[in-house]
Amino acid sequence: MAGSHHISRRDFIKLATLTVGGAIGAAIGVPSIFYLVDPALEAGGKDAWIPLGPLENFEIGKPTLVTFVRTKVNGWEKTSNSYGVFVLRKSEEDVTVISNRCTHLSCRVNWNEEKQTYICPCHDATFSLDGEVLGGPPPRPLDRYEGEALKIEEGVVSIFFTEG
């Protein structure tokens, strides 16, 4: 049958079989992919103003850890996640807020009073009082809440927090 433009009944059946099989595969396959990756499609990053407390709670010149809890609905469960920031009051009204999440692999950094540095317990990264990288693997300074994301109203420090 070489060169013939007519396809034989046999070839037609083969083609039809493959088409039907492919249709079933696609009809179940494509929704399945959406089904499996669904959590990745959810819009994340809820944001809110988080009050950290009145100014006088924070000793001048010494970073204070403030933790807060955010609950989030994951599937059919509510999960409470704890977050922490260091509040550093440099002078009466000058406040710096730094996230305690290491920019390397998200371990929580601690303030070391003696060495006057933040130390990450996972890979021994060190950060300065302002969050700049002093040593170790982190690619960038600790995240800061400043400008639009920081406000002091009626003596209460608040940050604009976005869940990541």
Partner: peptide, 9 residues
């Protein structure tokens, strides 16, 4: 109700 195409599966 929560998962894409969950009703179908």
């Amino acid at each position: 109700t929560g998962v894409e195409f969950g009703w179908l599966i």
